Simulated assay, not measured.
Amino acid sequence: MDRGGIRRRLAVGLALLTASGVLAVAVPAQAHAAAPTRCEGRKVKTYPFSTGTLYVYKRGGHVCVITLSKRPGREQWMKASVQAYRARAVTDEGKSTRRAGPVTVHAGQRCVWVKGRVGRGSVSKGWILC
């Protein structure tokens, strides 16, 4: 084998090693960036209230809710909550500038109770999606 063949193989090997290193660093960053910022499935209900809107999505037996502020940018107390019948509520609450949630429960065919809050405004819907 001549020196040209060895150099080409080394260059290809180095290129593959570099590409795999870049992917190893980039993929976790993309996975972190792709953390859920919205609900999966189709939107089944929208509940506007004085300071925000609560969106309800359904996919298979899962129900997901997200609360969005009408005036994003100002930090205020926000909450998104969903509870399947005869189960504990799953809640995301705290200070935020834009949204609370998404929060998801497996409801199967059970009814769910959804709640949303932005600042002093809130919405709470009784048993829905029965």
Rank of each mutant, 00 (worst) to 15 (best):
A89C: 11
C111E: 14
I66R: 03
G5Y: 05
H32S: 15
R42F: 00
I6K: 12
L14S: 10
Y47C: 05
D92C: 03
G94D: 06
R99G: 08
R3V: 07
R3H: 09
I66E: 13
V82G: 11
V56R: 07
T51N: 11
G60L: 07
T18H: 01
K70N: 13
T37I: 03
W113F: 02
K125F: 01
R71I: 03
I66A: 07
T51F: 01
G41T: 01
T51G: 05
Q83F: 03
R88M: 07
V90A: 07
S50D: 14
C64V: 09
A100K: 08
A29E: 13
G94I: 02
V12H: 12
G41N: 15
P72W: 07
R120L: 03
R3W: 14
H106T: 08
Q76N: 12
H106S: 06
V63L: 13
S69R: 05
G52D: 05
L129W: 08
P28L: 13
D2M: 02
K58Q: 15
L10R: 02
W77V: 00
A15C: 06
P36E: 14
V103D: 10
G116M: 09
R120M: 00
D92H: 14
T53S: 03
H32R: 15
E75Y: 06
V25I: 13
C64W: 04
G4N: 14
S122L: 02
G13L: 04
V56Q: 08
R86Q: 14
C130Y: 02
A11K: 00
K79I: 00
R7W: 00
V63Q: 12
S69C: 06
V103K: 12
L68D: 08
R88W: 10
V56G: 10
Y85A: 09
Q30V: 08
A19R: 02
S122F: 02
R38L: 03
M78I: 01
I66D: 09
Y57G: 08
V22T: 14
A107H: 06
A29Y: 13
I128P: 08
G41E: 09
A107T: 05
G116F: 00
A24T: 13
S124A: 10
G61F: 13
A15Q: 11
R3D: 14
Y55G: 04
Q76G: 09
A31R: 10
K79D: 00
A19T: 04
A89R: 13
H62Y: 15
S81M: 08
K95G: 07
V112S: 14
R88A: 11
Y47E: 10
V44T: 14
R38K: 03
V63F: 15
G116K: 03
R98W: 05
L14G: 11
A19H: 01
H62P: 13
E40H: 11
